[in-house]
């Protein structure tokens, strides 16, 4: 029942990472250069991250500064992307939104990983009833898409960045649990793990020394792909009013406001739309590219 974009079967029997390069295998750097997804994806992702960092210390204007004398100004030398209905600088708001979106995305992905990965390892290691229980629980959580969780959280606590992060993180937990479990099962069935177990190595040590390093590429790829989903979810939930309330600068909010004024200035819709798409595209490509780099057997498929 896997809808995960990762081909889990590909990692079973994967060579141990600690072995380094096997003779005749092209290096990671070589594979990276020859994967268009990886190259384009890292360039876009790097640009997004740089913009987010820069916006913390500097934006062309204060993203919240209202200037009623210059509303709906088109793109010009002063305002590269123009101004919105309150005369706020669109570029500055987009930049500050990048920061907010990335922060929310990274926190929710890491939060989900912190719960999902141990849960998946546990399910793989234990098997039997406890393992099944974890899996059923993951299925149950999986039945609640991030949107529903956000709706419930917003009914309880009102919309906020925390609502969005909590909802997205919760929705990602079962994804991590499943990917980790399938990956770990593959590694646990390998001969050298059996050998280690026969030598009396403890369960936790096997997980830490053998399983985690081997599934790390898989998990990093998954994190990157989920980051793009998080960006998307963040924009959608904020647009629906379940996220941070105005006047903060976030992409979803900018779209919601721009839609109300699209008769006056349709360009206001275009900027955040393009930004969201570019950001999602970047992380998506990076995730695909990482998969190419980490798992060369999947190339050309």
């Amino acid at each position: 029942m896997s809808i995960l974009p990762v081909r889990l079967d590909a990692i079973t029997g994967a060579e141990p990472v600690s072995d380094g390069e096997i003779t005749g295998e092209p290096s990671v750097w070589h594979r990276w250069r020859h994967s268009p997804s990886a190259v384009v994806g890292s360039v876009i992702s790097a640009a997004v991250i740089v913009v987010a960092i820069v916006s913390v210390v500097w934006t062309p204007y204060n993203p919240l500064a209202i200037n009623m004398a210059a509303t709906f100004a088109g793109p010009s030398a002063q305002h590269l992307l123009g101004t919105d209905q309150y005369g706020r600088d669109v570029l500055s708001r987009l930049m500050s939104g990048t920061d907010a979106t990335l922060y929310a995305g990274v926190v929710s992905v890491l939060g989900a990983a912190a719960i999902g990965i141990p849960a998946g390892l546990y399910a793989a290691q234990r098997g039997g009833l406890p393992g099944q229980l974890v899996l059923r629980l993951a299925d149950l959580v999986y039945a609640f898409p991030a949107l529903l969780v956000a709706v419930v959280l917003a009914t309880d606590f009102g919309g906020s960045t925390l609502t969005v992060m909590g909802a997205v993180a919760l929705a990602f937990v079962p994804v991590f649990a499943r990917v980790t479990r399938s990956g770990a099962l593959g590694v646990l069935s390998l001969d050298y793990v059996s050998a280690a177990r026969a030598c009396g190595v403890s369960r936790t040590r096997i997980l830490r020394r053998h399983v985690l390093p081997n599934i790390a590429p898989l998990l990093i790829t998954q994190m990157t792909l989920l980051l793009s989903v998080a960006v998307l979810a963040d924009a959608a939930l904020t647009y629906l009013g379940l996220g941070a309330p105005p006047p903060g600068a976030s992409w979803g909010l900018m779209l919601e406001e721009a839609q109300r004024y699209m008769g006056t200035d349709p360009l206001l819709v275009v900027w955040p739309a393009v930004t969201i798409a570019l950001c999602v595209l970047g992380f998506n490509l990076l995730g695909d590219g990482l998969r190419d780099v980490f798992d060369p057997r999947r190339r050309d498929r």
């Binding site: 793009s228 998307l232 924009a235 959608a236 647009y239 779209l255 721009a258 839609q259 699209m262 819709v269 955040p272 739309a273 969201i276 798409a277 570019l278 999602v280 595209l281 998506n284």
Partner: peptide
Amino acid sequence: AVPSFVLGI
């Protein structure tokens, strides 16, 4: 990469 609601708008 283009979310459905963005495409909608």
